[in-house]
Computed example of a mutant assay.
Amino acid sequence: MHTKHNILFIINPISGGKGKLRIPDFIDKYLDKEKFNANFVFTEYIGHAAELADEAANKNFDILIAAGGDGTINEVATKVLQHQKILGILPLGSGNGLARFLQIPKNLRQAILAINRLKIDKIDTATFNNKKFFNLAGIGFDAHLSSVFSNDKKRGLAGYVKLGLKEVFGYRAQKYIIDIDGIEYQRNAFAISIANSSQYGNDVFIAPGASIKDGLLDVCIIKPFSLLKLPLLGYVMLKGTAEHSEMIEIIKGKQIKILRETDGAVHIDGEPLKMGKEIAVSVAPLSLSVVVP
């Protein structure tokens, strides 16, 4: 008789804007009961997923499944990493950047069947000042947009794009001093994204050549541009050709320090925060165990 794995599904009922209350029925239907003892909890506020994950990891849950968007995944993964457990993902967010990179199906039934096979892989994780991130973190325009967007209740891609177009007209590029593995770069930048995986989500690629298994981060510097070129920038990201674009400079590295002119917004896996002028970023190679298809 083999022992069953204790598995906890941490479900964010509001991520991606769809009602998630039927998820336990779905899991109940497709999860392999021979392999798993399943439990479910629903998050009620930002930061709750992390608390629930922490509690579960201390109890004797081996596998913690984040059912939500990039924010929920970040909270759960941070605790999984700390306690050296195993992370699973049911991608229910609007972007699902990390899940897409790992090729976890958006279809819920298929995502659960993938968990049944229990194939485990190790991926790189990264730290942005004192916060962990798994997909992307950044400063500059996208961080500014995240912070404005979080105050705007009309979530969803269309709302995001609309707000982006409104904000982009007033946004000015800033000066940054960037140190990547001991080499200093001075850059004027519209935004700087630090990519562990290749995309923001929705197949918008900022770092098409990024890998979550290479022990490196891709520092993506979006150069200042005339607004006439905004459609081109969008096109480059949707086509996945950022590495060949004049508009984006990508430098790979392990230890990154960024000095900017003022304190301000940052985003970590899409969630907006405020940080100071100095940002230190590092990578921990193959540090997180994840269930992959």
Rank of each mutant, 00 (worst) to 15 (best):
L136Y: 03
Y171F: 15
K131G: 00
D124W: 02
A158K: 12
K153T: 09
N135A: 13
Y171L: 06
S147Q: 14
I180R: 02
Y176H: 05
R187Y: 01
S193H: 02
K132P: 00
S150Q: 10
G140D: 06
K166I: 12
D179T: 15
G182L: 10
T127K: 15
I139C: 05
V148H: 12
I192W: 13
S193P: 00
Q186T: 14
D152Q: 08
F128Y: 14
V161N: 00
Y171T: 05
L157C: 01
E184K: 15
F128E: 08
G164M: 14
N135K: 04
A126R: 03
L157K: 10
I180F: 01
L145C: 08
Y185C: 05
L145F: 11
L145E: 04
I123E: 08
A143H: 03
I183D: 04
A173N: 08
L136K: 00
S147V: 02
A137G: 13
D152S: 10
L165G: 02
V168P: 02
Y160A: 04
N188H: 10
K175Y: 11
L163R: 11
Y176S: 02
Y160T: 07
V148T: 05
N151H: 12
F190M: 13
D121P: 00
S193D: 13
D179N: 15
G140E: 06
